[in-house]
């Protein structure tokens, strides 16, 4: 009886979470397949792609890792690059933090699974009436990760058998960032962050060269935004 009650309490939350997660399904499965196909070109067993998507769950960093693994980059270099690429997620935590419970899986799993898409869903949708909001967030985040693991596994598994001409397929990552830039522009409704980013990109190329432009540009953007923020506060 108790289990039955618990299950029926969870069902409306599950249905709503699945609805919310559907656009992510359509994004993550094909993109995950692209990652899987590219990953097996490195010559590793397909299930390592599955393992990486379960343990890491960071699209952009995983794509970048394919390039770095191919070049035989050092473990430390890949770890630092991962932090740099995911640095924006630290700022997602800033606005999500106050909404999360103080401890336990319902706090730390959404933090672990905090991709761009998980963040946008968790900050824009509400748990349905009768569903526990903390559990609802875990369900949404877990469904998102499941789509990603499913896509990467399929791509890696099929890719190892197909091995067709996939040159240029990784442009999907560039396209993803174009899409997310537009989404961010629609949310923030300000030009200044993009002007600062353009200047930062130029500074990044001048002072960091191609390989280090991102970390230089991120430092530049953070410094300018901090200066902006303290001027506003003053």
């Amino acid at each position: 009886m108790n289990a039955f009650v618990r299950m029926s309490e969870r069902t409306p939350g599950l249905a709503a979470a699945a609805r919310a997660s559907l656009p992510v399904f359509f994004g993550y499965v094909p993109l995950g397949m692209v990652f899987g196909v590219l990953f097996v070109q490195l010559g590793y067993a397909w299930w390592y792609a599955t393992l990486m998507s379960i343990a890491v769950f960071a699209g952009a960093a995983q794509f970048m890792a394919v390039t770095l693994l191919a070049a035989g980059a050092g473990v430390g270099e890949i770890a630092v690059t991962t932090v740099v690429i995911n640095a924006r997620h630290a700022f997602y935590g800033l606005s999500l933090g106050p909404r999360l419970p103080r401890r336990g899986v319902t706090r730390w799993y959404p933090v672990f699974a905090l991709t761009d898409e998980t963040y946008s869903l968790l900050t824009s949708i509400q748990a349905p009436p009768g569903a526990d909001p903390a559990r609802f967030r875990v369900t949404v985040a877990a469904l998102n990760q499941f789509w990603w693991v499913l896509g990467t596994s399929l791509g890696a598994w099929l890719g190892s058998g197909l091995g067709g001409d996939v040159a240029g397929l990784d442009f999907a990552l560039t396209a993803l960032f174009v899409v997310l830039t537009i989404e961010q522009a629609m949310t923030v409704r300000a030009v200044r962050p993009f002007v600062i980013a353009a200047a930062a990109a130029a500074a990044g190329f001048v002072f960091g060269g191609r390989d280090y432009m991102l970390i230089v540009a991120l430092a530049f953007v953070t410094a300018v935004l901090l200066a902006d923020g303290s001027r506003e506060a003053a």
Binding site: S95, V178, T181, Q184, I196, A197, G204, L225
Partner: peptide
């Protein structure tokens, strides 16, 4: 302030990168 304006800037940087 950072939490609001960093994400859009980073997204454009990732396109350039």
């Amino acid at each position: 302030h950072l939490g609001r304006y960093l994400p859009p800037a980073v997204m454009l940087l990732l396109v350039v990168y």
